[in-house]
């Protein structure tokens, strides 16, 4: 509980087109839900999509060091909850 959880939503072009456009709402809803325990931001390309055919697993979100593939709002919230309850 001491350390803040960091959430990085990739807003690089590949992630954006593959669905992170719909994850932008997290940037508003996460602080409203978790207050200052979680820090959330939209970031430029995380570089995860460029390897081979990995674009197909976009959009990517990083919750601390954990990479979430084909991220959805639900998957990201679940990952945050798991980290908070550890």
């Amino acid at each position: 509980m001491d350390k803040k959880i960091s959430v990085k939503v990739c807003l690089g072009t590949t992630c954006f087109v593959m669905g992170s456009s719909n994850l932008q709402e997290l940037i508003e809803t996460v602080p409203a839900k978790y207050g200052d325990r979680v820090e959330v931001s939209g970031v430029p390309c995380l570089g995860l999509c460029s390897i081979d055919w990995e674009f197909s697993k976009a959009p990517y979100v990083k919750v601390d060091d954990e990479v979430i593939k084909e991220a959805t709002v639900e998957k990201v919230l679940k990952a945050i909850d798991e980290k908070l309850n550890k």
């Binding site: 807003l11 690089g12 072009t13 590949t14 087109v17 593959m18 430029p44 390309c45 999509c49 460029s50 674009f55």
Partner: peptide, 11 residues
């Protein structure tokens, strides 16, 4: 999709 295929970063 075309931007993705060519790896173009708009920003």
């Amino acid at each position: 999709a075309w931007f993705i295929a060519l790896g173009i970063q708009v920003t």
